[in-house]
Structure formats: structure tokens, C-alpha cells
Nucleic acid binder design. Structure first.
Length: 492
RNA sequence: GGCCCCAUCGUCUAGCGGUCUAGGACGCUGGCCUCUCACGCCGGAAACAGGGGUUCGAGUCCCCUUGGGGUCACCA
């Protein structure tokens, strides 16, 4: 097989969406699997919907997941359109520019070629005319679209115009799609689509065909929403007498309601996931598994990225859309968090603690971190669990101490005696702490559960914390004792 | 509405005619472990949308119905 070359070709019209990211992952995985090349191309042909900074977000978003294109817009290209930024990776490549607004002459050239060969024509119909035409067609319940009025009018190139494709009257086509198999259009009517807009920019249809051809793309991976316009693209390849790439129309990522995943489903931008405390490797693993599985009876679901790379082929890409299950993602994120090296976990979670307003003491946190690591699914969940270590004053809801076996007097007794025994400890460490507290429970005829509950609230203010002795040891003698003392006073 | 795509537990999926009394995972749930919460372990409920064919034999192939989705711009 000749070299596999795939591309991710987003239009910079907004934030990078997780569904779109998956398309990039698949394209990247396919290229890597076959030792090919993965490129990033910016499709900025809609000047009205451009969003400044979107390209940066796309590039950085991919990088966050470890997806680095082999070919992509160079810094020079970026600055030509005023979208460069500090620290932008200067990638480039021999098939550039990789930004469509920088390739306008090429599209014009191909459009002219199509006019010359009789496959396209200039059209100067006004939007008003088109609008009226469309309304009439709708009223007659016809297929809405351009009638072909200018086909034979030979509109001058001097006048403002668009270039339209001369669509055959009835079209029958067959596509061998790499994920869907045979897709056929049998004698369908199609209208003359615009190829080149009046502002000199190409439409998606022209640009994508020209660039995929020029950049020697071997596999076109895109969402299945593109399937209905594929006949146009196929016809374009034929009119140009270009070899077609392999098409793979990917199933969509759906929201919980079964509709295409979008903003209204909540967090879908990659940076929202990042801020919510998801690990990129977990998100990547999870998202790839919507619409692809290793097959072959494999029952494992958590894979290293290299492993996914090794096993990824189009054969096991599903046809049906898949719902994005936040629940399962959270579970998987927890699995990834637990598998982190302890110091790596500390490094990743510390920014989240700081963002929660905690002044983190590395010493104290390091002691308790492994216990936190095992208890959270999102990095954002760590802060409330260790807050007691890093604040001066804690809030306590005393009512939570009182259970069936424990009233106010009992709580005081527990705290007073604990304080007494703990104070006598030579080394304020985990084992010695346990050594005095457990016997005390027995002495008082209490189960450790309820008794430790009282101490937990007294010292941490929470009902959910890392293990008690470990928490005390991490907090240190002074603070632990003073908080117990404080609570005793509060109970009076 | 036209065209196109899709259809296995609530969700992600395995299954490529017999090994399926349909497997795994999330979630849910019963239990064990246990200082709270988690983790871990053991168990449970839960699916081939319906109807026709083809075949000795259909979750697996074909057709229809139903249901869902996408798309019909000088947006991608």
C-alpha cells in the first residue's frame, strides 16, 4: 500500500469540540498505525464565521492529548493570517500552505479548469433571485435549489459572480465506504452547487476535494453528516479526472438524548473537560471507544495510547452512533488517576487544589496524597477532601457527631480522653495513633465507626476524609490536638 | 417531505451461519472487606425492535415494517 496520509480539517469557527476531536484521533491513529502521516489543515473559507484564536485552541487541544501533526500550518502561514501565537509549534510541510485562505489562487485555477472543460459555469444570480426561486420550489414541494438559469448565459468573468458545478440531471453513484461498505445513490436529482463564492473563496466542496488531492490524502475520515454531500465530491473527482481517496464516514458522537453531541449537552469543549479534572489519556481512551473497539473478543477497555495505536484499524469502527456516557468516562478517569505514579498524581492534582484556594504544603499533602488518589474520580474532587490540612479554621456541623450511641456528653468524653492519650504520644505517627485510639474505643464500649466519626468531624470538619490516623499524622500533632481541644470547648 | 445512514442489556460494546441457555464494561443492585468515603473481591437483575423469507440451522444473510439519526445554503 502506498503511504497512508490522513488529515484533520476543522474550520476555525469555535472551540474544539470533543466529537470533532475524536475524528482527529481516528485520523491520527490510522496514520500512526500504518506508519503514515497525519496532517492538520485549517478550513477557513467562511470569512463570516471565523473566530480569532480558534486555531490556537485546536492545535493546543490536540497537543494536550499528545496528538502532534506531521504536517501543519507553519508559523509563517499563521502570521500571514494574523493568527500566530507565542510558543506555536512551527511544523509546516511540503504540501503547504495548510490554511485554505492562503490557497485561493489554486481554487480559482481549478474552478477555471472546470469551466473550460464544461463542468462548471459562472452565475450572477442575486441572493434575492435565489430566495424567490427557492420559495416557489418549496410551494410546489419540489427539491429546493438552483434551477440552472445561468448554465447557458455565459456570464462574464468581469461581473460579480459565483462558479457553479454543472450537475448531471440524474445521478447514480456508488461509494465503497471504508466503514459503511457500499453506499448507493440511485437516480437522485441534485442541484448545481456553488464551488467558488463571489468573494473569491471556495466552498467546502471545492476546497476539500482540491486540497485532499493536492496533499495526497489517502483516507478521508469525517463525520457521517458528510455522507449526503459525498456525491458532489465524487462527481468533482471524476470531472477533474483525479484518483479518489478512500472515504470513511464515522458514526456520530451523541448526547444522552440521542442527538448529535453539542453545547447544549453541557461540557463538550476539550478545555472544559480539562478544567473539570479529567486526564487527557483517560478522555482519549474513552472517546476512542465510542465507535471503535479492538474486537476479537477483547474484554479489556483501558489501553495505553500505544496499544490503541497498534490495534486501531477501520475494520472495527462501528456504523451506529454512540452516546457519550459521562458516567463511564468518570469511572475510567478514576482508573487512570489510580494508575498514576504517586509523584505524578501530586503534580497533576496540585494545580486543582491551588485553584480551589488552598495553599498547599507539599510535605503534608505528600503524606496523604496516595489516600486521596484512591478516592477520587476527578481531580477537582481532591480539594474538599484535604481542605482541613491547609486552612487555619475549619467549620464543624456538631449535629453530625450525634448518633444513637453518642450524645453530647459521650462526644465530649471521647474527645477528652482521646486528647489525653494522644498528647502523651511520643511519636505522632500513624501506628502509635492507632495504638491509642482503638483500645480507647474498646474501653468506652464503642464501635470504632461512631467513635472515629466524632474525631473525624472534630479535626477535619468533614464526614468524608482520607483514613483517620493518616489524616492526623499528616495534619501534625499541634493542629490535631488543638482542634480536638477546640471542639471540646464548643461542646460545653 | 426527498435522499442517505443506522438498529444486541438504560449506556459503550463482543458477536463476522452452528461453540449464544448471547460475553465484557459503566451504571443499578445483594453481599464480603472496612474508622468515614473509596478501592478490591464475590453474586444478581438487565438486550438480539417487529414480521416475512434464505438455510438442515439465524443475533449473524435478504426484504418489508417500525423506530432513531443525518442532510437538503455563496456554513462547514
Amino acid at each position: 500500500m502506498s503511504e497512508v496520509r490522513t488529515r484533520f480539517a476543522p474550520s476555525p469557527t469555535g472551540y474544539p469540540h470533543i466529537g470533532g476531536m475524536r475524528t482527529a484521533f481516528y485520523a491520527w491513529l490510522l496514520a500512526k498505525h500504518y506508519n503514515g502521516k497525519f496532517l492538520l489543515r485549517i478550513e477557513d473559507t467562511d470569512q463570516e464565521r471565523l473566530v480569532r484564536g480558534a486555531i490556537k485552541q485546536i492545535v493546543e487541544g490536540l497537543a494536550w492529548f499528545g496528538v502532534i501533526p506531521d504536517e501543519a500550518p507553519s508559523n509563517k502561514e499563521l502570521s500571514e493570517i494574523g493568527e500566530s501565537w507565542d510558543g506555536a509549534p512551527d511544523i509546516g510541510g511540503q504540501y503547504g500552505p495548510y490554511i485554505q485562505s492562503l490557497r485561493l489562487p489554486r481554487y480559482k485555477e481549478v474552478a477555471q479548469q472546470l469551466i473550460d472543460s464544461g463542468h462548471a459555469y459562472r452565475c450572477d444570480c442575486t441572493p434575492e433571485m435565489l430566495e424567490r426561486e427557492r420559495n416557489e420550489q418549496m410551494a410546489r414541494k419540489e427539491l429546493p435549489g438552483y434551477s440552472g438559469y445561468c448554465r447557458t448565459r455565459n456570464v462574464s468573468a468581469e461581473k460579480p459572480h459565483v462558479v457553479r458545478f454543472k450537475m448531471p440531471a440524474k445521478v447514480s453513484l456508488v461509494l465503497q465506504d471504508a466503514v459503511r461498505g457500499r453506499v448507493a445513490w440511485d437516480n437522485i436529482p441534485l442541484r448545481d452547487s456553488v464551488l467558488l463564492k463571489s468573494d473569491g473563496f471556495p466552498t467546502y466542496h471545492l476546497a476539500v476535494v482540491v486540497d485532499d488531492h493536492d496533499m495526497k490524502i489517502s483516507h478521508v475520515l469525517r463525520g457521517e453528516e458528510w455522507l449526503p454531500t459525498t456525491p458532489l465530491h465524487l462527481l468533482l473527482y471524476e470531472a477533474l479526472q483525479w484518483e479518489k481517496p478512500i472515504f470513511a464516514h464515522l458514526p456520530q458522537v451523541l448526547g444522552p438524548d440521542g442527538k448529535k453531541l453539542s453545547k447544549r449537552h453541557g461540557a463538550t469543549a476539550y478545555d472544559a473537560f480539562r478544567d473539570d479534572g479529567y486526564l487527557p489519556e483517560a478522555l482519549f481512551n474513552f472517546v476512542v471507544l465510542i465507535g471503535w473497539s479492538p474486537g476479537e473478543g477483547e474484554e479489556q477497555e483501558v489501553f495505553k495510547i500505544e496499544e490503541i495505536c497498534r490495534r486501531f484499524t477501520l475494520e472495527h469502527v462501528n456504523k451506529a452512533g454512540g452516546v457519550f456516557d459521562y458516567n463511564k468516562l468518570a469511572w475510567m478517569n478514576g482508573v487512570y488517576i489510580r494508575s498514576l505514579q504517586p509523584d505524578d498524581f501530586v503534580a497533576r492534582v496540585t494545580p486543582f487544589l491551588e485553584k480551589a484556594g488552598l495553599k498547599v504544603d507539599p510535605q503534608r499533602f505528600g503524606a496523604i496524597a496516595p489516600h486521596v488518589q484512591e478516592r477520587i474520580k476527578l481531580l477537582t474532587e481532591a480539594a474538599p477532601m484535604v481542605e482541613f490540612l491547609f486552612v487555619d479554621k475549619i467549620e464543624r456541623d456538631m449535629q453530625q457527631m450525634f448518633k444513637k450511641d453518642i450524645d453530647r456528653a459521650k462526644a465530649r468524653q471521647i474527645l477528652t480522653l482521646s486528647l489525653e492519650r494522644l498528647t502523651k504520644l511520643e511519636a505522632f505517627e500513624i501506628a502509635p495513633i492507632e495504638g491509642v485510639l482503638r483500645p480507647l474505643a474498646e474501653e468506652l464500649g464503642l464501635k470504632v465507626g461512631p467513635m472515629f466519626g466524632v474525631l473525624r468531624i472534630a479535626v477535619t470538619g468533614k464526614t468524608i476524609t482520607p483514613p483517620l490516623f493518616e489524616s492526623f499524622a499528616a495534619l501534625g500533632r499541634e493542629k490535631t490536638l488543638s482542634r480536638i481541644e477546640e471542639t471540646v470547648k464548643l461542646l460545653e
